[in-house]
Design a protein around this nucleic acid. Sequence first.
DNA 1: CGGCTCATGTAAAAGTCGTTCACATGAGCT
DNA 2: AGCTCATGTGAACGACTTTTACATGAGCCG
Lengths: 246, 246
Amino acid sequence: MSWRKEQRRAERGYHHGNLKEALLQAALGLIAEKGAAGFTFADAARMAGVSAAAPYRHFRDRDELLSSIAQRGFEQFEARLTAAWDDGRPDTVTAFERVGRAYLAFAREEPAFYNAMFESGLPVDANPALQAASERAFNIIRAAAERLAALAPPGMPRPPAMMMALHIWSMAHGVASLFSRGDAARRKLPMSPDELLEAEVLIYLRGLGFPTDRRPPGRSAEPPPVPPEASSGSAVPPGGPWGKPK
Amino acid sequence: MSWRKEQRRAERGYHHGNLKEALLQAALGLIAEKGAAGFTFADAARMAGVSAAAPYRHFRDRDELLSSIAQRGFEQFEARLTAAWDDGRPDTVTAFERVGRAYLAFAREEPAFYNAMFESGLPVDANPALQAASERAFNIIRAAAERLAALAPPGMPRPPAMMMALHIWSMAHGVASLFSRGDAARRKLPMSPDELLEAEVLIYLRGLGFPTDRRPPGRSAEPPPVPPEASSGSAVPPGGPWGKPK
DNA sequence: CGGCTCATGTAAAAGTCGTTCACATGAGCT
DNA sequence: AGCTCATGTGAACGACTTTTACATGAGCCG
């Protein structure tokens, strides 16, 4: 059994060469499997083919590894949200919804990152770099909300963009955390998490007075801000955001 | 140092008499302090004044203790939501908002339960009793949504109650989990989590066409369902749910 | 009342982790 | 070629989880 370790060592020499990265990747895999709580420093070392003490040359302790992963996660998260937002193209509402979907997609496709970022219980404010990365990611949502708020139909009090951003974030996180991941996803739902969130956001936006009927595809750069129905009469598109009531 | 244990033993005899309960209480305290992840079976035993092996007479393993706490948490949660809902008195919307506040209050006041229930990463469907308790709690929200949906202003497609319930749950959980607990609460917000959630729910309900201006206190048993403005013109109460725009 | 029995507790031990320390190795510079 | 320092090793400590064999005594039965 122990010739295996020798084997490993022979293959790669005494020095690993890229241990830090290997540990991060190993941890990512382990967290995806067993959650941040179940993840083990020793396991990551074993997976990288080094002794249990080796990781300490690269991370102060287990928490620092976790925190590094969370930080990296926020960076990728930010990148994906930025791409989804695409600076509000082709129109603000469409882009905004795309951001919502990107949020869920990230939570679903990168469970390890999402776990480390939001469910590992590590204090965000422990590491300044982590906190900064987290804020940069949130700022994408905030910027999008800002642009959306500016489109508020005239005649309505303009909603504070910060509040909108927090609302959207809480919806996305709520859906992701309750319905979109792990065994919670096994709860039988009447619709997919993506549809659930989309409907939720649409209803919310309508509550703010935004027109939320399907936008005409094609032209319409930015403001056709107030299609007449937005401020007169019911703004409900036939069928509503939740499809046909059966 | 070890006479202490003898002392303890003298006080209570060889048999503890109520160890199971003592362990649950101890665990509750520990989880509140250090989170479900940091909580230790051995610590709970120590706190109850018994050896590390004693707990195994009452719980198969650490997870079963955690699961017991989660179950108990869902039961108390259900009780609080039921009380808050108060069968929809004095009117459905008021009661509904009270449920939202009760949700946050529970998350804030019973961090240990909330943690075990939603953030400990234990599979809900592992224990059938746990799953049942969880469903009973959710059913309160569902029943409330059902009643609310029935009040949907005529002329609007009636929203599926199940969807509404899931939406509300995701909002409440999102706010609780992101802003209302632990160090996440340290994020500087423009408003309290309670206000944040209340505004969120109000905007959402307005998006569904519900009148959300402050209801006249006093009489008005159930339906004054559609104050005229609900289906004609802007339903925005002056100031909106978020107070004065500065 | 005496004795049995079984639920409940204990101590000891094995296996895992996290973490530290003294020591080994070898990559890269001089 | 030799030095040095970053990087890896092995051993060791204490804490935790879980199992096992053994101890205690509360409650019942005759």
